[in-house]
Computed example of a mutant assay.
Amino acid sequence: MTIFKTGTLTLIALAGLLGTTSVAAAYDQVFIGNYPTLTSCEAEGANMDAHPGWVHFRCDARDSGSTRNYDLYLTT
């Protein structure tokens, strides 16, 4: 009976660890906003006060119908 309890507790702990790791990996970027030009997106990203762990930014082009917009993300 003791081996069963130990094995069960080990599996629960392992599942919790794996679940925490996958959640942390999902948040490697944070969406900040959408900008009409690459220049405005880069200017906002360079001047943004970020959380100490979020030190980089990225501007991704996104076509929205006939216009192109840029999404600003903070990254680790």
Rank of each mutant, 00 (worst) to 15 (best):
T2L: 06
I3S: 10
T6E: 05
G7R: 02
T8Q: 10
L9V: 03
T10G: 06
L11Q: 01
L11I: 09
I12G: 04
A13M: 07
L14M: 14
L14D: 02
A15E: 02
G16Y: 03
G16E: 03
G16L: 09
G16C: 05
L18K: 02
G19S: 06
T21I: 09
T21G: 05
T21H: 09
S22W: 08
S22T: 13
S22R: 10
A25T: 11
A25P: 00
A26F: 09
A26Y: 08
Y27D: 08
D28H: 09
D28I: 03
Q29G: 01
Q29A: 12
F31T: 02
I32T: 03
I32F: 01
I32E: 03
I32W: 01
G33A: 13
G33P: 00
N34T: 12
Y35R: 06
Y35K: 09
P36C: 08
T37R: 05
L38G: 10
T39M: 07
S40V: 13
A43D: 14
E44P: 00
G45V: 06
A46Q: 14
A46R: 15
N47K: 12
M48I: 10
M48D: 08
A50T: 11
H51N: 15
H51W: 03
P52E: 13
G53P: 01
W54C: 00
H56T: 10
F57R: 00
F57E: 01
D60P: 03
A61W: 02
A61E: 15
D63K: 15
D63Q: 15
G65M: 12
R68Q: 14
R68V: 15
R68F: 04
N69S: 13
Y70C: 06
L72M: 09
Y73P: 04
L74W: 00
T75Y: 00
